[in-house]
Write a protein that binds this DNA or RNA. Structure first.
Lengths: 101, 101, 101, 101
DNA sequence: ACCGTGGTTAGCTTTC
DNA sequence: GAAAGCTAACCACGGT
């Protein structure tokens, strides 16, 4: 119990002197901001990729393909891939279970 | 009506001789596959980014931050950004609505 | 695995004698229809509300307001409301995260 | 051209004396607020209905029905209804076209 | 370990 | 036909 649920890490080596200029909002503030910024950077990239995807679909549509159908195709292929992967995992599981690995 | 519902573009300059070796399923098949592959590549990258995000959150959690709270903070910061953008758009909208643009 | 994917509840005390008069299509049929009808009633009401909304916008337009701008205003007000709500939730979250609740 | 695109109606009988106490932001402000409030009221009701719907689905799920399948059923029934309605509209059209109404 | 909840993402509808 | 807003499906997380 008494788990670590704090919204900020409670450093044991807590500053006994607040020497840091421009502490961004107290305990762990800088470290938190660092994480937040990494996250926001990744989300930006993700957003960019989503826009790229939309563009590809738009281009395909522009040359006459039906977008809705294409999405279906992609979804089906994804399902196939996952199915296959799971099947292979199961196979590995069996093999290791009988000492074949 | 008369919509374009075909899952492939119906080229007018359709090959009269099917000279292509390995035609991937007929009319437009190769072009379609090219799009599909571009899409799948982008989706892979997106998935990778999402995994990176999870890792960052996990790392933050590992040093004591509360993930749920962090997500909330990120969401609120995003809302701020969007709010600002939309407010500016609204201003433009007002301006165009009253003929100031 | 072994999920509940049946479109109807599989009663364990399954009828050993099919004595029900007018069973609407098998096991649980009547109960299902009851749910469906409740749902359809609610959706009707929803549709009616959406029509009312369109009418209000149309009336506003009729007296000279710009609908697009109005929608934007409504959306921004909604964002404000949500922002406030979420901010309060975040506060609670912080409090619970640091054990203040 | 020069249509009515203003975000507010430009009354010709515009108040020459601003006698109204608490005018909500100038020209047409009160009238606009009235519309906005009607809209927000309707949207609240809509939201409430959507919550009711979720509850019904939840209840159905609670007794063992598969929600996704139920949604499909509802959607299909709706399609039927619309199909029928359109067919009837077409019939009316024919009838009026040949002077039967 | 599973279920239920909440949040995110994708698809569809409607508008312009 | 394109863009936006809304709705429904999906997924990851925490609780039991």
């Amino acid at each position: 119990m008494t788990e670590n649920v704090a919204p900020f890490p409670v450093s044991d080596d807590q500053d006994t002197q607040d020497e840091q200029p421009k502490d961004t909002g107290g305990i762990g503030g800088q470290r938190l901001m660092s994480f937040i910024e990494r996250i926001e950077r990744l989300e930006e990239e993700k957003t960019a990729l989503m826009e790229d995807l939309k563009e590809v679909y738009a281009e395909a549509k522009g040359v006459g393909f039906d977008v809705k159908t294409m999405r279906k195709v992609v979804a089906l292929r994804k399902m196939d891939t996952e199915k296959r992967r799971e099947t292979e995992e199961l196979l590995d599981l069996y093999k290791s279970a009988i000492g074949m690995m």
